[in-house]
Design a protein around this nucleic acid. Structure first.
Length: 262
DNA sequence: ATGGTAGAGCATCTA
């Protein structure tokens, strides 16, 4: 079977219900992983998604903040959810397809503005969240698994508009990049997007604060698709839907896609 | 170095 998966930080699933529908109609990924739903699970507007063939959902939510959901046209059952770093936030949910593939959907904490855990508690929480992920993958090596989400780190020099300018900016500091590398290596995860598109600048997020985000193009690749080595060679066709950043009342993130032949 | 925008929900907090 072949299926296409997308990951998208939607920044309020209720405000942007119409944009989710547009993606479902125009791109029709089989599996759509959302982050920052900012909604309790019971208030996610499921009926309109069901009408478009997305009959399955696993999700975690809370009022106003965070929230992750996996919407699927393929049968999907819940495969757990973790409370990483003990924050009590809705930042992870996992589902399993009938072919046995597990899909992890993560929303890693943004980490605040100051890249120092002594001055900024949120930065420490971000690092601890990643360390907890790493330890989980070391204790229980994932197989036949896909990990997606807003990881809030742009690891490579060509994942940001200026490596030099962002070295001290949260999302691209060396300590965050090192934590993310350890997390990835602990699960033997393969960066599917970069497997497919190894060269060149690649961004999935542009700040709302720019006068002209498109012209300035000061983006970062914060949203990722990873897979375990037993299925990573089945992945292809990665792409980033930059055009969605120009949709009406957009999210500051755009969808990232990958297709798997399994 | 600074300030810039957006969402939730109604005062700020978070990104």
């Amino acid at each position: 079977m072949t299926f296409t998966l997308a990951t998208w930080n939607i920044n309020s699933v209720r405000l942007r219900e119409g944009l989710v529908e547009r993606l479902m109609r125009e791109e029709a990924p089989d599996v759509l992983c959302l982050q920052e739903c900012k909604s309790p699970v019971e208030k996610i507007p499921l009926e309109r998604f069901r009408a478009l063939g997305y009959d399955w959902m696993v999700a975690r939510g809370q009022k106003g903040y965070n929230g992750v959901a996996i919407l699927s046209k393929l049968p999907l059952v819940e495969a757990g959810a973790g409370d990483y770093a003990g924050l009590g936030h809705a930042r992870h949910v996992a589902g399993r397809l009938e072919n046995g593939v597990t899909i992890h959907n993560f929303y890693v904490p943004a980490g605040g503005d100051i890249p120092d855990r002594d001055e900024n508690e949120k930065f420490g929480q971000k690092l601890d969240f990643l360390t907890h992920m790493r330890d989980d993958f070391l204790a229980n090596r994932p197989e036949k698994a896909i990990l997606v989400g807003d990881l809030n780190i742009a690891p490579r020099e060509d994942d940001v508009w200026s490596h030099k300018a962002l070295l001290k900016i949260v999302s691209h500091t060396p300590i965050e990049v090192e934590h993310l590398a350890q997390t990835r290596d602990a699960g033997n995860w393969v960066d599917v997007t970069r497997q497919d598109i190894p060269e060149g600048q690649l961004y999935s997020w542009w700040s709302y604060r720019a006068r002209d985000w498109d012209a300035a193009d000061k983006g970062r690749r914060l949203d990722h698709v990873w897979a375990t080595p037993d299925i990573s060679n089945a992945a292809h066709g990665s792409r980033i839907l930059r055009a969605a950043r120009s949709w009406e009342q957009p999210s500051d993130h755009v969808p990232v896609f990958a297709t798997f032949d399994l």
